[in-house]
Design a binder for these strands. Sequence first.
DNA 1: GGCTAGAATGAGACTCATTCTCATTTAGAA
DNA 2: TTCTAAATGAGAATGAGTCTCATTCTAGCC
Lengths: 132, 132
Amino acid sequence: MKPRRNTWQREAVRAALVGAHGFVSAQQLHQTLRDSGSTIGLATVYRALASLTEDGEADSIQAPEGENLFMSCGSTGHHHHLICRSCGAARELDATVVEEWASKVGAEHGFAEIEHVIDLFGICAACRAKEA
Amino acid sequence: MKPRRNTWQREAVRAALVGAHGFVSAQQLHQTLRDSGSTIGLATVYRALASLTEDGEADSIQAPEGENLFMSCGSTGHHHHLICRSCGAARELDATVVEEWASKVGAEHGFAEIEHVIDLFGICAACRAKEA
DNA sequence: GGCTAGAATGAGACTCATTCTCATTTAGAA
DNA sequence: TTCTAAATGAGAATGAGTCTCATTCTAGCC
Ligand SMILES: [Zn+2]
Ligand SMILES: [Zn+2]
Ligand SMILES: [Zn+2]
Ligand SMILES: [Zn+2]
């Protein structure tokens, strides 16, 4: 892990990410921080999120609309999520079966350096209750 | 399927997509078409790809970099791919196990309207040979 | 074949997420 | 405290994709 300086900006992003409880975009996070009086710059939020993700402190996924979403995730290892399209709440999934499937399939077709993207999106119970 | 008029532009996009043999971006496709003398507009390429995808004549995926990629795909039903990061070549996958896993997991967590994104990326044998 | 309504097109303006530039600030070691 | 490279922030730049709207063209009708 490359060296990082501890700036209040980096810490603020980390805190905001933890406070978000679910996947959020860089823009949302920046807005939240500004709304709470911070003067942090948008570019800095992007930089902090990139480094946090690099260091394994945050997970990132691509929303179906193309935006990148980030989340402060407890477990550090490789894993997958079930995400609420409406509020961003996420559940970690035990994906042992698909991990095995993915590596088997990759090998079978003679492809190297296999990576996989596996995400489930839906509407959580809470959001459904709200809408009804 | 909503009605579509047959224009040479739509046909050109369809043909270029078939000729591409793998996943390509709208921009690439547009460039290819222009290079071969066509005067087709970029917006039209986007519109044609969107309608072809809607009609099930093309598949689309999100590249890890965020760009949307399209491919003329034989089978019409729901399925997944193993894609070469380098040349876009793709294999269709039998993903019965993961389909079952996905629907089970969604239900278990009380989420509704589950959709899943499952894509494998790697480097195909041909591209590895080329690089070496 | 001509006529017409409405769909499709294309040039370019526009949006919006993300990255880059660069002058200024600051963390952290000495 | 001093110094230096890393980090920051404002705004410019990038780039995929969408939108607008005047013009063109398809397809059905005579
Ligand atoms: Zn929700
Ligand atoms: Zn995995
Ligand atoms: Zn390849
Ligand atoms: Zn599937």
